[in-house]
């Protein structure tokens, strides 16, 4: 990993909120800070509704966060004008979870892949066409399918189209929001391998979001675990697997059904019940309502992030 110490993307105190019915507020992301260094892949895991996608959208300025700072390549994205933002957009792109809604059904895939170039660049139609054909073959799509529409492709191929569209501007940062969650394992493996090849080829820095810890561990150098809008734990992938600290992370690991360890279901570490509503998150530690190791302090006091070993931080009173 080159330039390991230079963050490409820095998030500080990101807050994302949505208005719900009856004047309530959904606290989707609450005060999250972390950095992604150049050349690394950071995995972001957590259950559905924990704010992973909201965080990704905040980074993409789709729209930006309610408060907090997104710094990309030393630029505060919120301070940029619309024009300036459009100029920098080719350098950070995103692959969305649901390719059916992320691709325009009426637009040919060739045009879809060329769209970012058309919006942000000043290449001629022919130049764009050549680049798209090259990109299609790089992601494993037959360039003869240039004029086909998304419905003529399978789920795995649609994800390839999305990857091609995201990479056509040769970005430095690629955000992948659950890119493989609706695919069969064999197709999932192909797409993950493709992302790894592309990462090496384009020297990409990635934020990879998934609810599947095994997938995240396979692709990431570091993993951040989110729970109900908060960051619980962040550590190098192997370290998180070997010695995860937060009770929620252990609960996640122990809940994974594994082919080679069918008996490994340590029930004691399980968390109980379901995610509380993000409109009224619990006081103190947000995980306390489901935590098997909850104590009195957790009700009143929000845990800070403690560094328990170099690069491994955890937000839990047990590590005070």
């Amino acid at each position: 990993m080159k330039n390991k110490n230079r963050p490409l993307l820095e998030l500080s105190n990101i807050v994302v909120e949505f208005n719900a019915d009856h004047g309530e507020k959904i606290h989707a992301v609450s005060d999250i800070s972390f950095a992604i260094f150049k050349g690394e892949t950071l995995g972001l895991v957590g259950e559905s509704g924990c704010g992973k996608s909201s965080l990704a959208r905040a980074v993409m300025q789709l729209p930006g966060p309610a408060s907090g700072k997104v710094t990309f390549c030393s630029k505060d994205l919120a301070q940029l004008s619309k024009k300036e933002l459009l100029k920098i957009r080719p350098r950070f792109q995103m692959v969305f979870q649901d390719s059916v809604s992320a691709l325009n059904p009426k637009r040919s895939v060739g045009k879809t892949i060329a769209m970012p170039l058309k919006v942000t660049g000043n290449l001629s139609k022919n130049e764009r066409h050549t680049l798209v054909e090259k990109m299609m073959s790089k992601v494993g799509l037959d360039s003869e399918l240039f004029n086909n529409k998304p419905h003529q492709f399978s789920g795995g191929q649609c994800q390839r189209i999305q990857i091609a569209r995201a990479l056509i501007t040769e970005p430095e940062l690629l955000i992948c929001d659950e890119p493989v969650s609706s695919l069969d394992v064999s197709i999932q493996a192909q797409i993950i391998n493709l992302l790894e090849t592309m990462r090496k080829q384009y020297d990409l820095t990635m934020l990879f979001i998934s609810h599947d810890l095994a997938v995240v561990k396979n692709i990431s150098d570091r993993i951040a675990v989110m729970y109900l809008g908060k960051l619980c734990e962040i550590a190098p992938s192997e370290q998180l697997y070997q010695s995860c600290a937060h009770p929620y992370t252990s609960a996640l690991f122990s809940a994974i059904p594994r082919v080679n360890h069918p008996q490994a279901f340590p029930k004691l570490q399980r968390c109980i019940g379901e995610l509380p509503s993000p409109t009224a998150p619990p006081s103190g530690c947000r995980f306390r309502t489901r935590c098997p190791k909850v104590k009195e302090q957790c009700v009143f006091e929000e845990p800070k992030l403690y560094e328990i070993s170099p690069g491994h931080t955890v937000a839990c009173h047990l590590f005070q």
Binding site: S186, A189, E196, A214, K217, N218
Partner: peptide
């Protein structure tokens, strides 16, 4: 066997290439 092999394994180190069909 191919189906089992395509599943990412937690005990494998990061960036292990996955087998696919």
């Amino acid at each position: 066997k191919a189906l089992i092999n395509a599943i990412p394994r937690l005990e494998d180190p990061p960036h292990t290439p996955l087998q696919f069909i």
